[in-house]
Amino acid sequence: MQLENTLFDYSPITERPEFSWPGGKKVAFYVGLNIEHFRIDKPSTSIWPGTAELVPDALNYGWRDYGARVGIWRVIDALDRHGIRASALLNSDVVEYNPQIVAAGLERNWAWLVHGKTNSEVTAGMSAEEERKYLTAAVDTIAAATGARPKGWMGPGLTETFETPWILDELGLDYILDWTNDDQPYALNVPGMMSVPYTLELNDLGIFAKGTTGPEYVQMIKDQYEVLLAESRRSARVLPIALHPFVIGQAFRTKYLDQALEFLAAQPDVWLTTTDEIAAYYRETVLDQD
């Protein structure tokens, strides 16, 4: 039996309606800030796999935990310097274990997206009812902590089941980031749901794992902007960057994040925004006009 993708249709970017972002801006830029909790008794993202199966795994757990203790605060300072609000990809367990981070985001009016419960677990293998219970708890926890029901989702490790978008729609969400296959938002074949661009390529976790230097990172972001701007003369584009505080929050890297943010914030064609605002504007000006 051959499975075919029914979640979304093929749509060449050359065959879509022309549109611009608010104020005639051409490139919508957002920071996808991964704010994650990791269990001490399960393996997860590792800087060295040699100890990943140990319990406790002090080496890898400590590397990840640096993000919540130190790195996130460095990143927040960089965002504040350039007037950029984060799109916070929040594990709901952070509400319990790192409430100071949530408080800092509330002070800054971040957009809050559901990023599962913890980055040590995924919904793969759950029944539909188990997943519904799991997602409901995560959504409700974040809603209670932030005072507003979240609108967006990104799965831990960008994971979903075939049921995930439908359950998220039932829970009142209206967009997902998991399918990193476009430079524009697009409608899903789940009524009311859409995809908003996220990035695997301008993602600090993958970039710096390959040995990329800080200056090279800045140049990559500049190059991405310049090409998207040239293409956006016909139709607007989205430029996301993905950040993990235990990676980009290292002192020798945050220096270069600051340079990249300074560059983008100075560009007259850039809309500094959040995923919530991108989804809402695209829905109103493009999808609702079809």
Rank of each mutant, 00 (worst) to 15 (best):
residue 241 I to R: 00
residue 49 P to L: 12
residue 171 L to F: 11
residue 157 G to Y: 00
residue 225 Y to N: 05
residue 288 D to C: 11
residue 186 Y to C: 09
residue 219 Q to W: 04
residue 60 N to G: 04
residue 224 Q to I: 01
residue 282 Y to K: 00
residue 249 G to P: 05
residue 147 G to I: 12
residue 182 D to P: 07
residue 123 T to Y: 03
residue 98 N to R: 14
residue 200 L to H: 11
residue 220 M to L: 09
residue 249 G to E: 06
residue 94 V to D: 01
residue 85 R to V: 02
residue 37 H to S: 06
residue 249 G to A: 01
residue 96 E to V: 07
residue 273 T to E: 09
residue 8 F to W: 14
residue 260 A to V: 07
residue 59 L to G: 01
residue 22 P to I: 06
residue 235 S to F: 02
residue 110 W to M: 09
residue 76 I to Y: 12
residue 236 A to Q: 00
residue 155 G to V: 15
residue 175 Y to S: 06
residue 250 Q to I: 04
residue 81 R to C: 08
residue 83 G to C: 14
residue 273 T to I: 06
residue 175 Y to Q: 13
residue 243 L to G: 06
residue 147 G to R: 07
residue 247 V to W: 04
residue 273 T to M: 09
residue 69 R to L: 04
residue 288 D to M: 13
residue 174 D to Q: 13
residue 196 V to Q: 11
residue 51 T to P: 02
residue 162 F to T: 15
residue 181 N to Y: 07
residue 18 E to H: 02
residue 204 D to V: 06
residue 137 A to D: 10
residue 49 P to T: 08
residue 259 Q to P: 08
residue 128 A to Y: 09
residue 216 E to N: 11
residue 196 V to N: 05
residue 180 T to M: 14
residue 96 E to Y: 14
residue 137 A to K: 07
residue 263 F to G: 10
residue 171 L to M: 02
residue 258 D to A: 11
residue 210 K to S: 00
residue 223 D to W: 13
residue 165 P to L: 01
residue 227 V to Y: 10
residue 90 L to G: 02
residue 170 E to H: 00
residue 6 T to P: 09
residue 211 G to M: 07
residue 262 E to K: 13
residue 32 G to C: 03
residue 244 H to Y: 07
residue 86 A to D: 02
residue 139 V to E: 02
residue 70 V to F: 11
residue 127 S to Q: 11
residue 51 T to A: 08
residue 51 T to G: 03
residue 241 I to C: 00
residue 275 T to N: 14
residue 99 P to N: 03
residue 171 L to W: 12
residue 232 S to R: 12
residue 80 D to L: 01
residue 256 Y to M: 00
residue 269 D to H: 04
residue 174 D to W: 12
residue 247 V to A: 03
residue 257 L to N: 07
residue 82 H to P: 00
residue 271 W to E: 12
residue 125 G to L: 13
residue 151 K to E: 10
residue 224 Q to T: 05
residue 165 P to G: 05
residue 286 V to P: 00
residue 78 A to L: 01
residue 208 F to S: 00
residue 284 E to N: 15
residue 228 L to K: 11
residue 21 W to R: 12
residue 53 E to W: 08
residue 149 R to F: 09
residue 41 D to I: 06
residue 248 I to N: 02
residue 41 D to N: 07
residue 234 R to W: 13
residue 136 T to H: 08
residue 55 V to T: 12
residue 266 A to H: 10
residue 178 D to Y: 04
residue 101 I to G: 10
